[in-house]
Amino acid sequence: MSNIVKISALSRKVFWLCAVIFTVLLIIAPVFLLFKYSISDASSINTGGSPVPLWPYNPTFRNFLYLFSDNQFYGVVINSLLIAFFTVIVSLLIGVPASYVLGRYQIPLRKPLLVGLISVRLFPDIASVIPVAEFFITIEAHNTYWGVVLAHTLLALPYVIFIGTSAFEPIPRDLEHQAMVMGANRFQIFLKILFPLAIPGLTAAAIYTFLLSWDEFIFAYFLLGLGRISTLTLYLKQKLAYAPPQNLLATISVCLSFPVIIFSLLLQKHMSAGITSGAVK
């Protein structure tokens, strides 16, 4: 009897271990392959009939060197950085005051407002991009930096407000009252007490916004086309259209993903919280 129990417990463990290994492989494999391609030399791609190797014949960083010597690449990286940077600035300028109010005041319908805010993001980008593009053509914001910045701000704002609100909310009311009694006005309280204490959460919101803009494709594509100003995502798409060598494609992809992976892992906690809180309510 006890032997049967032991065997079934053991087989359960083995099954479970296999499942974990399978999952880990499933997740790691594509990432590994991307990396492998980015360091592949030409002979490892154009194999002439023999199978594509799992590890390049001659691993090389030449693809990166090639990319880093391309002036166009620098141009698009700088564009992406500029757009992401200004998106962060505008989103915070607009989003932080709103988060402050939502986090510190018991305004009526606060909960529904926050849920509604997150629900805005359920509206398909591919549907809202058409009217935004048409509108930007009318106001001549098409093909401009600030047009994309405004659009990315639109995408980021709900997240900024949501994360920002949860950064302001837990600050003890006593601190605010203490400052008030000590003679501070509302602005001073915000600037000297609340804002410094909300900085960790707001940093998360800023990084999130930066990443969102950095790897955003749809709005950038519709608002900039493949025209004068290009971002890193558009550069990648452009290369894709001209049947590029796979190793170069992979190299650009690695450059695009690298900051996102690093920061996402750093921000894990915030990201998970954001996803689940938006979902369950």
Partner: peptide, 22 residues
């Protein structure tokens, strides 16, 4: 492993598409 499982989310969708493309 929990952090590992989050990796797909951290890779831009465009890049994931390109991995499959290759």
């Amino acid at each position: 492993i929990r952090s590992l499982v989050l990796i797909p989310l951290a890779i831009p969708a465009l890049v994931t598409a390109i991995i499959l493309f290759i």
